[in-house]
Amino acid sequence: MDWTFRGDQPIYAQLISRIKQGIVSGDLPPGSRLPSVRDLATEAGVNPNTMQRALQELEREGMVYSQRTAGRFVTEDVHLIEGAKRAFAAEHIRVFLEGMGKLGYGRGEILALLQEEKEDAHGNSGM
């Protein structure tokens, strides 16, 4: 995972988002065991307390759960994971539409451009 941080957001919030992305992308599969707080903190180059806070928040949201002796695991609730994925997608779309709006594109033009892009991709990659 990529662990670079933006300055304008709390690090724990960025950690939550990064780990969630790992879960929805399947890098961290449902039911898999997470590394220890210390190992995750070392990998990310962050304070272990900050990592702990992020994991506790993910636990509160149900994305991960802990078993007292065995450690922390990714949820097996695929609906929850799908929901998180949709939330990421909605955010990407919002940012995209906002950017296109600033360029002066309306919804119809955006859809046309996307369609064109899709055809290009088909043509270029031979998919």
């Binding site: 300055g7 304008d8 690090i11």
Partner: peptide
């Protein structure tokens, strides 16, 4: 707290 500076100021501790 470092994260509380980022949260309330909307900027890194460095900035």
């Amino acid at each position: 707290a470092a994260d509380s500076i980022r949260e309330t100021q909307g900027t890194s501790v460095d900035r």
